[in-house]
Every structure is written in structure tokens, then in C-alpha cells.
């Protein structure tokens, strides 16, 4: 593993995203939306910062997943990935370069949620930790979709429904018990549950087990996709 190459990929992606509105909007949309909603919508009996855990879950389930899948699929479609690999870049160096860029961009967005939610001390640490875990799983799902897809269009057709399930199921779970039970089996559902009780109780075994199980399944799916195509 060569840090120089990882850094080169990271810097390339930073420049490229600035000109790629489709990916850029993924990183900005929910943090911006939460600031607007949190400041403009105040209703009776509504919890303070009601939108923060809700939008944080959506952000975590959506931004890393779609951006990773879209970046990877575009690079495959336009042959830039093949050129990188033929220039001595290892698939893992590429994935770490792009993945760390997405992680950083999403953690910046997470910072906006943390400030809006006015989290402090233990709450803040728990929030950042659980968001980091969720972003990692979401990025890995995106990588699996990107590796599986031949081009950007097929990546979008897979990532949109997957992203909808992970992002919206925890929200729908607020209104429907059956969906709530299903949502508890998903990492995004558990993270949303955890975000809603930040600071009051630590992470219970159920959350830990679901996150680990989901992480393992995602890792396995990524391994399968990687084995099938080898990325390029």
C-alpha cells in the first residue's frame, strides 16, 4: 500500500467533486436542509432539534452510498480506472483514496448536524462515533454497487432503491410497527434509534449486533462484487 498514490487519488477526487454537481449536492443537501428546517419549523410538542437525527440518518444512508457508487461506476465507464490500475495504482489504494475522501466530506457534513443539534460532551462523541460507523457501512455498500455495475446508469438504478430503503425505512418506522420491526434489523434503523436516545443510554447489545452483522454482510457483498469484476 502506497500512501503517495492514496493521497494523489484523494486530491484528484477533491478537485473533481468541486466540478461534479451530482456528487457535490449529495454532501451539501441534507446538512443545508437540516439547518433551514431546524431554524424555520418550530411546532408545539415537537422535540427540540427534531430534524437532526432524522436527517442525519438519511444523510448517512444516502450521501456516502450514492457518491461512492457513482464515482466508482463513472470511473469504470470512462475507462479512467483501468488507466489508473495500469499506472501502478492498486485497487485497494484507489478504494482507500476515494473512500477516505467520502468519509472526510461526510464527516464535515456530520459536523453541521452536530452544531445544529447542539451536541456537547458525551452526546457529541457518541454522535460522531455512530455517524462514522454508519458512513463506513454506507460507503462500503456504495463500493459494492459501484464494483458490481458496468456503468453509471446501472449504478444509479441499483443505488437509488437501496439508498431509499436504508434512508427512509427508519423514518417510516415512526408511523408503522411492522416497518419498525424490519427497520431494527438494518444498520440505519439501529443508528436512528441510537441517535434518538443520544446521551441517555449507551449502545445496547442489539445495536452492536445489528451493526456488526450488517457490516459483515456488506463486506461479503463487496467481496463478491470485487471478485466478479476486480473493479476495472
Amino acid at each position: 500500500m502506497d500512501g503517495r498514490k492514496i493521497s494523489a487519488i484523494f486530491k484528484k477526487q477533491l478537485k473533481d467533486t468541486m466540478k461534479n454537481k451530482t456528487v457535490l449536492i449529495q454532501f451539501i443537501m441534507f446538512p443545508l436542509l437540516v439547518v433551514i428546517m431546524d431554524h424555520s419549523i418550530k411546532m408545539e410538542h415537537m422535540e427540540e432539534h427534531f430534524f437532526v437525527p432524522l436527517f442525519a440518518t438519511m444523510y448517512m444512508g444516502m450521501a456516502p452510498l450514492t457518491s461512492m457508487a457513482s464515482i466508482l461506476a463513472e470511473e469504470k465507464e470512462k475507462n479512467t480506472l483501468r488507466v489508473l490500475f495500469l499506472s501502478n495504482v492498486k485497487p485497494m489504494e484507489y478504494l482507500i483514496g476515494i473512500g477516505s475522501y467520502i468519509l472526510l466530506a461526510c464527516m464535515l457534513g456530520t459536523g453541521v448536524f452536530a452544531v445544529t443539534g447542539e451536541y456537547k460532551g458525551r452526546e457529541l462523541l457518541e454522535f460522531l462515533f455512530i455517524m462514522l460507523a454508519g458512513i463506513l457501512i454506507s460507503t462500503l455498500i456504495g463500493a459494492a454497487i459501484g464494483a458490481w455495475s458496468k456503468n453509471e446508469m446501472s449504478a444509479t438504478s441499483i443505488s437509488v432503491p437501496v439508498m431509499m430503503i436504508f434512508s427512509f425505512l427508519p423514518m417510516i418506522a415512526m408511523f408503522n410497527n411492522t416497518v419498525k420491526n424490519i427497520s431494527r434489523l438494518l444498520w440505519s434503523g439501529q443508528i436512528n434509534r441510537f441517535l434518538n436516545q443520544l446521551g441517555t443510554a449507551g449502545m445496547d447489545m442489539e445495536t452492536v449486533c445489528v451493526l456488526l452483522a450488517n457490516g459483515a454482510i456488506v463486506l461479503f457483498l463487496f467481496g463478491m462484487a470485487y471478485k466478479k469484476s476486480g473493479l476495472a
Partner: peptide, 21 residues
């Protein structure tokens, strides 16, 4: 197939590979 980064400029396209090497 060219395999160039369409949104990056000429310099940045080459800078990426100079960094890789």
C-alpha cells in the same frame, strides 16, 4: 479509449499521474 478525467483541466490530469509515479 482516452480515459481522461473530463472535468479536470489538462494540468490536473497530468498532475495526478505525476503524483502517482
Amino acid at each position: 479509449n482516452t480515459g481522461l478525467y473530463e472535468r479536470l483541466n489538462c494540468y490536473d490530469n497530468l498532475l495526478l499521474f505525476a503524483r502517482i509515479y
